[in-house]
């Protein structure tokens, strides 16, 4: 694992390794000294071609807790005013000695371009590309779900997957990188995923995805859900005939107070409500739902730092390919190399 570009090609062993490492990183947050020296002397560049203060500060906090130097590069450009090309920017960062580039870009596939070309040699972390993927968001969602799921079953979270967990994701799947990353990762971790959306906001070809698809949120809830994830509705969709009005959207596909009560009536007392933020309160999620004890919105934010620490640590400390297997033999090798440097 030299780069973290997508969850589509992230194997179960690697995914669980990131989540397990994130658990150890989370423990650091509870200490008096909330800092580890692991990435001292390494440089992490936050390269943002699109505004996202939340994601940027989360990565910044993660890198700083690992003692990395952080450079924030807001290369905000639109397709209209192009400015400097991605290639020139990448070569500039390479010349500045970046060890990792955390890239947010409005164009799908831009992180893949950085990783595939010889423009820069650094590790590339996709912090959200167009309508493609947002792998660290999916990892922090999975981390949040795993903690909930294992606590519910009184089992150990380290090493666990999400087998048997029923997850529903509702909203603008067509334009959502969060939905895509979650579908692939949750499949890999063994969860049972249902996408709920108006047909206009589902991509052609969604029937080939490893999940169920529903147009009816109430029926999905009635069938039983352990985690209900609401996606943000982007403002620009509202005037492009994807749905008739925000009122109709909210009534059919929003998580409103009626549906919050329905969870109790359906006996789904342990169902959590998730949202990647920022929320449109009153549109895709009601305030009562967002603020209910079921809501994991703030836990997701907190877990984001731990998951991003884990990703940065695993990508930047040496060659991880050798340690990617989880067999007993690999355990011996790891112990051996540890002792040889004792």
């Amino acid at each position: 694992m030299k780069h973290l570009l997508s969850t589509e090609n992230l194997g179960a062993a690697d995914a669980i390794r990131i989540l397990d490492t994130a658990e150890e990183m989370a423990a650091v947050g509870d200490r008096e000294v909330k800092k580890l020296p692991a990435l001292r002397g390494r440089t992490v560049v936050n390269l943002f071609f699109e505004d996202s203060t939340r994601t940027r500060i989360s990565f910044e906090a993660a890198a700083k807790r690992l003692s990395a130097d952080v450079i924030n590069f807001a290369a905000k450009g639109s397709s209209v005013s192009k400015g400097e090309s991605l290639k020139d920017t990448a070569q500039t960062l390479s010349a500045m000695g970046a060890d990792a580039v955390v890239i947010r870009h409005w164009a799908s596939g831009a992180p893949h371009r950085l990783a595939a070309t010889d423009w820069i040699d650094a590790a590339v972390i996709n912090a959200g590309d167009g309508t493609h993927e947002h792998p660290t968001q999916a990892l922090l969602d999975a981390f949040t779900m795993r903690r909930h799921w294992t606590k519910l079953h009184g089992s150990e979270s380290i090493g666990a997957d999400l087998s048997g967990m029923r997850v529903a994701i509702a909203g603008d799947v067509l334009h959502s990188r969060v939905a895509r990353s979650n579908v692939w990762l949750l499949r890999t971790l063994g969860a049972d995923v249902t996408l709920v959306a108006p047909p206009t906001l589902l991509p052609i070809g969604v029937e080939q995805w490893p999940c169920k698809v529903s147009y009816n949120l109430d029926e999905t809830l009635e069938a039983g859900v352990d985690a209900m994830m609401m996606l943000r509705v982007q403002g620009e969709r509202m005037n492009a005939s994807f749905f008739p009005s925000t009122r109709e959207y909210s009534r059919r596909w929003g998580f409103d107070d009626t549906r919050l009560r329905a969870l109790d009536e359906l006996g789904l007392k342990d169902t959590i409500i998730m949202h990647p933020g920022p929320m449109n309160r009153g549109l895709e999620i009601s305030s009562a739902a967002a603020d209910s004890p079921r809501s994991t919105v703030l836990a997701q934010v907190r877990n984001g730092v731990s998951v991003r620490m884990a990703a940065l640590y695993l990508l930047l400390s040496g060659d991880t390919r050798e340690a990617a297997t989880t067999s007993g033999a690999a355990g011996t090798d790891a112990a051996r190399s540890e002792k040889e440097n004792n």
Partner: peptide
């Protein structure tokens, strides 16, 4: 693990 001085030369492993 996180305090080692050879992190960039060793295969990374979860702490």
């Amino acid at each position: 693990t996180m305090f080692r001085d050879d992190l960039s030369h060793q295969p990374a492993r979860p702490p």
